[in-house]
Nucleic acid binder design. Sequence first.
DNA 1: GTGGTCTAGACCACG
DNA 2: GTGGTCTAGACCACA
Lengths: 131, 131, 131, 131
Amino acid sequence: MILKIDFDSEQPLYTQLRDQIVKGIAAGSLKEGESLPSVRQMAEDLGINLHTVNKAYSILEQDGFLAMYQRKNALVQKLPLKPDKSFLKKLPNQLKPIIAEAYCRNISEPEFIAICKDIFSSFESEVENES
Amino acid sequence: MILKIDFDSEQPLYTQLRDQIVKGIAAGSLKEGESLPSVRQMAEDLGINLHTVNKAYSILEQDGFLAMYQRKNALVQKLPLKPDKSFLKKLPNQLKPIIAEAYCRNISEPEFIAICKDIFSSFESEVENES
Amino acid sequence: MILKIDFDSEQPLYTQLRDQIVKGIAAGSLKEGESLPSVRQMAEDLGINLHTVNKAYSILEQDGFLAMYQRKNALVQKLPLKPDKSFLKKLPNQLKPIIAEAYCRNISEPEFIAICKDIFSSFESEVENES
Amino acid sequence: MILKIDFDSEQPLYTQLRDQIVKGIAAGSLKEGESLPSVRQMAEDLGINLHTVNKAYSILEQDGFLAMYQRKNALVQKLPLKPDKSFLKKLPNQLKPIIAEAYCRNISEPEFIAICKDIFSSFESEVENES
DNA sequence: GTGGTCTAGACCACG
DNA sequence: GTGGTCTAGACCACA
């Protein structure tokens, strides 16, 4: 599992880290029960501040992706099969502005769906291949 | 065209306003050539500061959704038929973290696609019905 | 002499009008002693406000391009052969930021000169042909 | 790199600052990757408001001259070798009124070209000499 | 009346 | 300490 942080991105480092870990879980390179490097180790590996890693881990814990033990050891959690209701409510609100802009920019529904399917399949295929 | 601003949201006011207007254009309630309220009027209507509205308008102008003139109100612009390449490149990056999380939360691809289609059709249907 | 005002331009109307008239003089379509339409007439012709025309005429008078008589009749003036010193001092300052940006954008000196020559020759050729 | 702001000029402060920085880049006193003072520092140095500097920096960022990050100062960017098409289209329109007035004021084409060359060479020579 | 510019001062997110 | 956001209030150019 290789995490890439783009220091030149406009996106905050801690959300980048969060997204990278979620992507890792989605792609299967991070499996249930697996443990992440300690906050200190991760910060050193990525060359970022300890507090930044801490913030990312905290959010992931709060969202149910991680369970923190001993203040430093982070274990990947398996999410319940039924999707969280609050997430189901949040999801369309996240998508709406994106789709609105895509629609204005004359991207057709099939084109958009194709892009989504591509991303989905990128997760599903990797599940089988990665360790 | 009713705009709603959520003062408790963590999302900046000016991006909320931007998104609302893009949604309005997508939904057809704002048509090409139509004019938006003046920055002062809009600010008063929403109960926010003039400069915040100005920033939203400026971004929309920069993105080609609006044209602003010193002597006229902001006018809704028609976007070119061909989607902007830079947007096509940005789009998957916007979607990837959202889909990754959805995938982790056991939302299936068909479910996700259905949500997208719902949003798409909400724009397409309103185009015909709204004034 | 046809004047074109672009109501959608970001440039103020009165400076557009001023520039158009200067271009007309440069191109020879407006000759020394020729009289421009009255402020009222010009405003009506262009569909702009009387004050806007007045402002343009005033600036042109101040710059020596026009002589105003009877408050309404504007005569094209011939400029002295020796260039105004204050203009010679102002000119490089006007050009410097433009050339600086062109240079940054990798436009070579010959390219730039070619563009200038094109514009120059557009004035010189028209002098002979226009009425 | 010394920046001069003329408070008595009719030109807006933020465009003055913008032009000064572009000139600095053209002259080579600001090199790729170099960082500009923070908005606060620059504002203090020039005796102007923080937001005014911010606006100048934002425009420069939008035009590709600077890259701004939340956690770093503004960094000078290298522009692509191929000139922007939109700039090539804008350039003659910027030059036309200036050349028209110069032509009216009996400045010959060679004189004008000489002035342009002077400005160009002022950039090219400094590139080698400055640190 | 419109938007544009500028100032002053505040709070927050980020690292 | 950085830039980002937001507010409040002022003056000016434009038409």
